[in-house]
């Protein structure tokens, strides 16, 4: 186990302990919920892990780098940001996927843009958001989020 994984486990265990001290019944309920969500997300985890294996095994880094790498330019960045808005995959699963892209030659900027638009902007959920919050707020929020996601990605790319 690496340091990060250890830290995450210690943190989760500490939260669990605090919860257990404060309320036994609630802790039991949350553990049942945790087991359920674990098995619910497991197929997706396996899918992503297979996809990552195939991606790094079959697509040469030069190809990945051409599409989403340093030399892909602004067009590539917009493309991957747009892809992030249309895809509807849980963020939890997207991190190992983008980590593999990074390993395969994608740029930090592209990866940051993808995660940020994936989480902040949702084309699939647009009708639902309009229904609940109205056209004005929805379009402003998603539009501005897209632009800010690009800016955030460019800053991260410049620093890291």
């Amino acid at each position: 186990m690496n340091k990060r994984a250890l830290l995450i486990n210690v943190f989760a265990f500490a939260c669990l302990l605090i919860s257990l001290i404060r309320n036994k019944e609630k802790t039991k309920q949350s553990l049942i919920g945790a087991v359920k969500s674990f098995f619910r997300i497991l197929p997706m985890v396996f899918i992503v892990i297979i996809v990552i294996g195939l991606l790094l095994g079959f697509v040469p880094p030069a190809k990945i780098s051409d599409i989403v790498g340093e030399q892909a330019g602004f067009g590539g960045l917009i493309l991957i940001a747009f892809l992030g808005t249309t895809l509807h995959i849980p963020a939890l699963i997207s991190f190992p996927l983008v980590a593999s892209l990074l390993k395969g030659g994608a740029s930090v900027t592209a990866v940051a843009a993808f995660i940020t638009t994936l989480t902040m902007v949702g084309i699939v959920t647009l009708p639902l958001e309009i229904k609940e919050l109205g056209k004005k707020i929805t379009l402003l929020r998603n539009g501005i989020s897209f632009i800010f996601a690009i800016i955030i990605a460019l800053i991260i790319g410049a620093i890291l």
């Binding site: 995450i8 486990n9 943190f11 949350s30 919920g33 969500s37 892990i49 990552i52």
Partner: peptide, 28 residues
Amino acid sequence: VFTTSWEFFVEMIWILPAVMILMGLFMV
């Protein structure tokens, strides 16, 4: 393909239960 998939699987499985426990706690 096997080594890559296995590597990512191990990294994921070390943290997945902890992440799910955190989610369960917040849910309640």
